[in-house]
Amino acid sequence: MSVVNRSKETMKRRIRDPWPGVCRALTRLRVGAGLLLLGTASLPSATAGTIRHDRPDSSYTSLAASYPAVGALTWSNMICSATLIDQDWILTAGHCLDADGFSASDWTFDLTDSGGGVHVGAERFVYSGWTGDLTTGTDIALLRLATSELSVTPATINTNTSEVGQTATHVGYGVTGTGATGITAPAGTKRAGQNVVDVDGSVVGGYSDDILFEDFDSGSAGDNFFGSATQLDLEYLIAGGDSGGAIFMDFGSGDVLAGVHSFIASVDGNTDADYGDLAGSIKVSSYASWITSTISAGNDPVAPELSSWMMWMVLGVGLLMSSRSATRRI
C-alpha cells in the first residue's frame, strides 16, 4: 500500500479532528502587511456547504445534479467528499485518507445519487508531502477502487494555471446552513454552489501558492475579506463533510476539476461557515503530473461493479451524520 509514512513524533504533534471532512480553522492569516488572528470553534454534532439565506436550498441541490462524478467518501463513522477521475480512481483530500489503523477497503465511495454504484477502496495514495500542515498546500490524495464505475463519466483534471479570478462551482456532501446562521444541519446531502477564487497563497503570508482562497460574501463590506463584496446568485462556502470535494471551473472548453476542498477559516473567531468566513482548496493543476503518473502506475484490472444498494444499506444514515473538525479541517 502506497500510503504516506509519518514519524511517531510528527503524529504526536498533529491535531486530529473528531469530525471528518470539517476544515481546520487557520490560526493565522497574513495578507499583505496585515496579520489576522483567526480563532477556532467547535462544530456541533452534525448537509453540504452553507448557502445564501435568501435563496432556496433546492437551487443548490439541483445544481449538484450537474456534477455526477462527485460522490460521498465514508469510513468508520466519518464522511468526506471525493471525485471520480477515472473509472477506477477518485481524488480527495489527504486528510480524508490518512487515518491510521485502517486498510484501503475500509473506505467506501458512493455514487448512487448520480446513477452509479458503491465502491470500496483497493489502494490509497496520500501525496508524499502531506504531513498534516494545511498551510503547505499538499492536502491531496488518491484512492484506487476495487471495482470499476462504468455508469458515471469521470471528471477531467485541470491543467490550466489561471484559476485566480475564476468563478468556481463547489460540490460536496458537507454540513449546511445559511450565511446568516452558519452551519445548522447535518451532512450527507449533495449540494453545489459558487464562489469566486479571489487569490492564491502567493499573496497570503505563510501559505503555499498551491492553495486557492475565497470568502463567503454577503454583499456587505464588513463580510468581505478578499476581492469584491458582491455576491454571486448561488454564493456558497464549503463546510464540514465537504473535505475532498470538488471545485469545477470552465476555461472555455467545459468544466474541469480545478480544486480539492481542504479547509475553512474565520475572521470573527467562530468558524461556522457563515458570511465572512474563508475557504482554502488545493490547486489540481499543481498536482496534475502526480495524479497522472500515480494512476498510470497503479491502474491494474479490477472487479466488475458491486451491487450498490446492498452496500448502501450497510452504510446507513449514521455514516452521513458525521464530520471531523474540532480544529476546523473539512
Score class of each variant (00 low, 15 high):
Leu143Pro: 01
Gly132Met: 12
Trp75Arg: 09
Thr161Met: 09
Asp210Ala: 11
Gly137Ser: 10
Leu43Arg: 06
Thr153Asn: 13
Asn5Leu: 15
Gly177Thr: 08
Thr327Arg: 05
Phe125Ile: 12
Ala273Met: 11
Gly254Met: 14
Leu237Ala: 09
Gly116Trp: 00
Gly94Val: 03
Met78Ala: 10
Arg144His: 07
Ala192Ser: 13
Asp233Pro: 07
Thr83Ala: 11
Gly39His: 06
Pro44Ser: 14
Ala122Ser: 14
Pro304Ile: 12
Thr271Ser: 12
Met11Ile: 15
Ile330Asp: 01
Tyr207Leu: 02
Thr189Asp: 11
Asn160Gly: 06
His53Asn: 13
Ala229Phe: 08
Pro68Ala: 14
Arg328Val: 02
Asp215Trp: 03
Asp113Arg: 00
Lys283Tyr: 03
Ala303Gly: 12
Val267Thr: 09
Asp223Ala: 14
Asp274Lys: 15
Ala82Leu: 10
Asp110Val: 09
Ser286Ala: 15
Val126Asn: 01
Lys12Phe: 13
His261Ala: 09
Gly32His: 11
Asn77Phe: 04
Ala46Glu: 04
Ala221Ile: 10
Gly227Tyr: 04
Trp19Ile: 04
Asn5Glu: 15
Asp233Gln: 12
Asp250Thr: 11
Asp17Met: 02
Ala104Met: 04
Phe263Arg: 00
Ala33Glu: 14
Gly179Lys: 01
Thr74Lys: 01
Val199Phe: 09
Ala122Val: 01
Thr161Asn: 13
Gly245Ser: 08
Asn5Thr: 14
Asp133Cys: 07
Met78Asp: 05
Pro304Val: 13
Thr294Gly: 09
Thr40Glu: 07
Arg328Leu: 04
Tyr287Asn: 06
Ser42Cys: 03
Thr136Gly: 08
Arg13Cys: 12
Thr294Asp: 15
Leu306Pro: 08
Glu214Thr: 08
Asp88Gly: 03
Pro44Ile: 13
Thr271Leu: 05
Ser293Ile: 13
Gly241Cys: 09
Thr108Leu: 13
Ser128Gly: 09
Gly245Pro: 01
Cys23Ser: 11
His170Gln: 05
Arg55His: 12
Ser81Trp: 02
Val118Asp: 02
Thr50Cys: 06
Thr131Val: 07
Gly219Tyr: 02
